[in-house]
Design a protein around this nucleic acid. Sequence first.
DNA 1: AAGTGGTCTAGACCACGTT
DNA 2: ACGTGGTCTAGACCACTTC
Lengths: 265, 265
Amino acid sequence: MAKTGDRGRARARTAPAPALAALDFALDRVSPVPLYHQLAQQLQAAIEHGSLAPGDLLGNEVDLSVRLGLSRPTVRQAIQSLVDKGLLVRRRGVGTQVVHSRVRRPLELSSLYDDLEAAGQGPTTQVVRNEVVPASCEVAAALGVPEGSEVAALERLRRTHGRPVALLRNYLPVSLLALDDARLESTGLYRMMRSAGITLHSARQTVGARAATPEEATRLEEREGAALLTMERTAFDDTGRAVEYGRHIYPASRYTFDFQLLIRA
Amino acid sequence: MAKTGDRGRARARTAPAPALAALDFALDRVSPVPLYHQLAQQLQAAIEHGSLAPGDLLGNEVDLSVRLGLSRPTVRQAIQSLVDKGLLVRRRGVGTQVVHSRVRRPLELSSLYDDLEAAGQGPTTQVVRNEVVPASCEVAAALGVPEGSEVAALERLRRTHGRPVALLRNYLPVSLLALDDARLESTGLYRMMRSAGITLHSARQTVGARAATPEEATRLEEREGAALLTMERTAFDDTGRAVEYGRHIYPASRYTFDFQLLIRA
DNA sequence: AAGTGGTCTAGACCACGTT
DNA sequence: ACGTGGTCTAGACCACTTC
């Protein structure tokens, strides 16, 4: 690269480049979507699209806010959200730059969506059991309800390419939502919860493995003693109430958990 | 509860109570730790200690900021950080309240700390292999380095109560940090990275299961064909560079992954 | 010394949920 | 109608990094 004279700002020797020259950001002040979110979305799009390459500097926040006609806190809020997502890095005295290796996927939820969402065309879900039962000791403890109180017990068999990939056993507080088989098989539990106004907030999971019992082997179309992945999970909504408890098994030959951890300082 | 006259603010019927009466918050404006962080810590302490019970309202942000002698954005920043942690819930028109079920643990990192930190008195770690080798195709792809370039190959056997609980096989870019066996066995990889100035930011994991091969069974002191948990992970630092790739196995009879997911809107 | 992000202030108006 | 959090502004000073 030729090192030509530069009337404006001197270019640092090591620094990648000024970057983010004049990408056009269209901010709609009438839109109900917040300005910081609009900006964040467009920055993210620029990163994913490649207009902003890994290592590129964003330019300082003050200039940015002036150029965009926004206040600095608003710009910071947008940038911060992308930093939280792992797309940008801030360094004092240096600037904000695009992360080097693109984050693989915003997969965030591990198998939670897999398990609850269903939906997709590939996998099919068959409701094997759907009834109201008194809560066992174990279920009651997980859901934080009195032992013996009524809970919905759900058992679903999920298949991909015609073969079983999961046996999902869920327990939910009754009166949380209506569980009809047809919707469960087509829509998925997760979407049913959302449309019932339930916002998932966190989940606690334990993943283990063991050999399949004869009965499990039969149902999952595996050999007896085949390796199974087991998962136990309690999900909580945004008020901290347990809304789902599940004990699931997966044939290890056809299923792995795949997820991304975000380390927070 | 007697319903007596109330000159001040009327008390809502369902609402728990005004709450957060006059907990003393000691803010040190000289301290290098930010005010919003000091406030967040003290709020969290009050929640964990029980001074703020689940469901308690915090009182509106404006009043709070006045009482604390802080600006509202600062107070909001503190509250927001606890909302992100799942300790508080905000509701428009209602207020901010303590989440109902206490979040179990801030475990956030699943087995990452387990695997990398070692440290603790219970588990011991034995370095079985520690050498520099040319990167295989698989390792090169995971770490984003050229195939055949030098990487550190590490193999450690971890025991609790004298029995193996994990066989950890790691690959790291050479020149990232010095890996001497003694420190690895006492300090743990994770702390060594931190003290080398490496800040972990995210990790991508795949967890599966399978039967142990004869050799694996021997090393993990298990029967041949016993169920194993397998985990493959690539960890990235805050600049997005891969800093660790691991292929680990765990005897399922003595190990489970246990972690908490935070769902982000 | 200069430039960057990190923190903080003191207001403002709006959207939403409750009453 | 009212009170709540949600958003936004236009500044200020500080701490850290690099030159």
